[in-house]
Amino acid sequence: MNILYFALIREHIGKSSETIDLPSGINTVGGVIDYLEGQGDNYQIAFAQPDLIRAAVNDEYVGLDHAVSDADELAFFPPMTGG
């Protein structure tokens, strides 16, 4: 699965994108976060405040309970501050 990171989350994790093999049994956005948090301190810091995490699957905003599969592109970012 391809994952994109933006803004503060990108800086905490230290990369703007990566491809992971989705472990079996992980099938929601929230599940991916739980998995990533086990991959290092940088991920734990990036995802430490759940209310400051927004997600999109295939360029559509979704909630953390949204289903994902290996073929999806997932993006994580903080609340938007444009305008």
Partner: peptide, 23 residues
């Protein structure tokens, strides 16, 4: 709507360093 729904993020560089603007 654009303020909360358009995927843009502001980062400010101030005299005390840089930081992301909080929503």
């Amino acid at each position: 709507w654009l303020k909360t729904d358009a995927p843009f993020w502001k980062k400010e560089e101030t005299e005390d360093g840089t930081h992301w603007v909080a929503a």
